[in-house]
Amino acid sequence: MSQIRFTKDHEWVLLDGKIATVGITEYAQSQLGDIVFVEVPAAGKALSAGGEAAVVESVKAASEVYSPVAGKVTEGNAVLPDAPETVNQDPQGKGWFFKMEVANPADVAALMDQAAYDKYLAELNG
């Protein structure tokens, strides 16, 4: 069963077995504006929860993308370095950043679900 979860740094995680796909949310891409550069991690890179995993840049801002949970990268999205606009077009689909084998799937379940994230966004904009 796969279920989407969210972090306060506006990353989303979709877990399928032990493999999680990670990206940035619709809200995050709308805040950044036109994305001009993305750097994704290479397969094999070990990530700690909250550690820097990727970089995303618009014209006027640069942000780190943090790993929502601990684990090891299995694949970076090879499309993004040449077509960073994919993140603007489809942030929670084709614009995923990397896939990782998570150390403990329960860590993902502990993150915010859709309802909790929506509430969090409402508070931010309140």
């Binding site: 550069f37 840049e57 618009s58 014209v59 006027k60 801002a61 640069a62």
Partner: peptide
């Protein structure tokens, strides 16, 4: 490519 620079990236 100003995101390399101090006025955006600050200590990084």
């Amino acid at each position: 490519l100003s995101t390399r620079e101090q006025h955006i990236r600050r200590e990084k």
